[in-house]
Design a protein around this nucleic acid. Structure first.
Lengths: 140, 140
DNA sequence: TATTGTTATACTCTATAACTATA
DNA sequence: TATAGTTATAGAGTATAACAATA
């Protein structure tokens, strides 16, 4: 039962928090010459290679047309490979290079450091519960 | 110390959550013929009347030029009053009308019901901690 | 005919600059 | 001259439509 009714709407708290988190990431990404979408794409290629660009676009919540320039840039700089699928030459197999993995992890580490400063404002218990709740609520 | 390092970046969880919260609000607001910015403005006029439109814009994180059409609409529909300040006739004193308060509370109630569905996925303890943490982190 | 990637175009939202009226 | 509000314009980011290559 809601005991906590005297508070702003969730969106009124979550959206500004998201904005400030994005703002905190931006200088870190700039230090590694990554755009936000470039970093998100690298994170989306975290594990196994993806079979199509459209699959990546959907996975990271981007438009497939918007992704193209992002991938062009990542490829030019040697962060990803875009190989035509021998089985279906329309599709492009996407994978991260070692160099791409390095820059992604370096950026991620910097971002984590910034996040620590924020999370330090929470008690250890609230911090754990907050992260647990976030993971629950952010997946559809 | 971070025990929770195997997780997406905070922004990668918070921003999508914010988007889904906004998406959940939209049908409720439409039911009350409110735009998101209209609702946000009504919420910003929660308590005491504000002395200027620029003050409201800053309070809700909006551009003052963007607020004008929003306030025009709210005033036309009798949700707010915009009275020239007798002490400084450049400024407009802003306040909510009873009608505006009613529509805001009705919308708020609908939004809270939607939020309940989401928060129900959390344990009571995590829910309390999540809201406490959100309030801490969303204020600068 | 349908789908992948691509390009070109249009649209939405937001910010910047310029104007008026008061001070 | 400086400020509150307003208007008009320009910009960034995003989505839609149309196209070439392949299936």
């Amino acid at each position: 039962m809601p005991v906590d009714d005297d508070r702003p709407d969730l969106a009124a708290m979550v959206v500004p928090l998201g904005r400030s988190l994005v703002a905190a990431e931006e200088p870190v990404l700039r230090d590694h010459s990554l755009t936000m979408w470039g970093y998100i794409a690298l994170c989306g290629l975290d594990e196994a290679p993806l079979r199509t660009q459209a699959a990546l676009a959907q996975a990271i919540g981007a438009d497939k047309t918007r992704l193209i320039g992002v991938l062009d840039d990542l490829q030019e700089r040697g962060f990803i490979r875009r190989e035509p699928d021998p089985a279906d030459r329309r599709a492009h197999l996407l994978s991260v290079t070692a160099k791409g993995r390095r820059v992604r992890e370096a950026a991620r580490a910097g971002i984590r450091r910034r996040e620590e400063e924020l999370l330090a404002r929470l008690s250890p218990g609230d911090r754990r519960a907050f992260l647990r709740a976030l993971r629950t609520l952010s997946q559809p």
